[in-house]
Simulated scan of single mutants.
Amino acid sequence: MTTNDESQSILLAGASGVLGRHITHALTEAGHKVTGLGRGAENGLRADLLDRDALLRAVDGHHFDTVIHAATALRKPPMRDRDMYATDALRAQGTAHLVEAARATGTRRFVVESMAFGYGYGDHGDRPLTEDDPFGPPGSTPRLERHLAAMRTKERLAFEAQALEGVALRFGLFYGPGGTDALLPLLRRRQLPVPSDRGRVLPWVELTDAARAVVAAVERGRPGQAYNIADLTPMGFRTHIEAVARAFGLPKPMTVPLWLMKPMSYAHTMMSSRLRLSCAKAERELGWRPLHASSGEGLAAMRSAGHR
């Protein structure tokens, strides 16, 4: 195990995003100094990851101990495959540019946000997948290959970057403060129809738990390693949405046939998948366990903290 919990100077790409805000808080609480990188004025360094020259100009003269890539182009849950294309570009070209920037700033550690669907979309059965299972298999369709190629490339660039200690965190689906809030008005107006799960489950992780995993990766992650990060209770998409409705006293979502979701191609693919993760490696090597063992627990904590 590599342990470095001394105060670090950290560059966080995606600091203004939902996950990024949680990561910033968790790192700051752990005693690290965080500089945000992104296009918005709220960032300490302003640059677009897809603009290599502008990015290198932005970091010129700076030094960081660790660079974290948590940038996404998503502002709401992706419904169609095209909703993922800008994020796909950030995962591929954006990572290549950020690796260059990390080298230019004398960075030692490079941590990337990855995700469970990198193991492939579809039915993986009931066996929890471990980090030894193939990651980034060929997509079954051109549109899915586009997403998987981007996830595959992001991890490969992190692990193969010369003079950088690459670490990847393969997250389940996010929920929690700043993430779940957008669903509440839709449920209130009964505008969020979802199909039955029919035995399908997905991994989930509460956002503050995810941020704690990033801190653990910065301080204790082994170079060249990936870690699955999810709670202890995989559940189907509908079951999760019903838990949201129950936690906030809102009407249950309407039930629709799965085929009716086909026009929303990415959501249909996601809701059709069955995927479980084993997080034993993260517990063993990072010392990370979720504080919220299930969506029900995490949503109850969110409600008690005053979210409506």
Rank of each mutant, 00 (worst) to 15 (best):
V214Q: 10
D81G: 11
A213C: 09
H63L: 03
L12T: 03
L37D: 08
A216Y: 02
R80D: 13
G176E: 11
R91Y: 03
D88Q: 06
L184N: 03
E285R: 15
E297S: 15
I10F: 04
T28N: 08
A116N: 01
E42G: 08
G122E: 08
Y266R: 04
K252P: 13
V256D: 00
L275H: 04
V218C: 08
L164I: 01
D181V: 07
T153L: 14
G139K: 08
L129K: 01
G122Q: 04
F171K: 01
T28C: 07
E285L: 13
M302S: 03
G38N: 09
Q93W: 00
T180A: 09
D88A: 09
G38H: 08
D51M: 01
T28A: 05
A158R: 04
Y266S: 13
T107N: 10
V34W: 03
E297C: 13
A282W: 13
G94P: 02
V99L: 02
T208I: 02
V256S: 02
P203N: 06
D5S: 15
G120L: 10
V112D: 00
G20L: 08
R156D: 05
S16Q: 10
L286F: 13
D81T: 02
V215T: 14
D126M: 07
R308P: 05
L45A: 04
H147S: 12
A116R: 00
L12Y: 02
N228F: 08
Y85C: 01
V194E: 04
I10G: 01
H240D: 07
E297R: 15
R57A: 15
R52S: 13
P257R: 10
F174W: 12
G94K: 01
I10K: 04
Y121S: 04
D197S: 09
L232Y: 03
V218L: 00
L184F: 10
V59Q: 02
I241L: 09
G178M: 09
L129Q: 00
D83H: 15
R276K: 11
M302Q: 13
L27V: 10
A217S: 11
A211M: 04
E283H: 13
G296P: 11
L202V: 07
A301P: 05
Y266T: 11
M254G: 07
P142K: 07
T95N: 05
D48G: 07
V34E: 10
E100D: 15
G31E: 08
G287E: 10
A300S: 15
S265F: 14
R156I: 00
E285W: 06
S273I: 08
R39S: 01
R156L: 06
G224F: 09
G40N: 14
D48W: 14
A30G: 11
T87S: 15
M84I: 05
A47E: 05
P251R: 15
L232R: 11
A86I: 05
I68C: 13
L148P: 10
N43H: 14
T130M: 01
P263H: 06
R52T: 10
S295Y: 00
G14M: 11
W288C: 03
C279D: 03
H268T: 14
P177T: 12
H268D: 06
N43R: 03
G166M: 12
N4Q: 14
G178C: 15
P263S: 02
H62T: 07
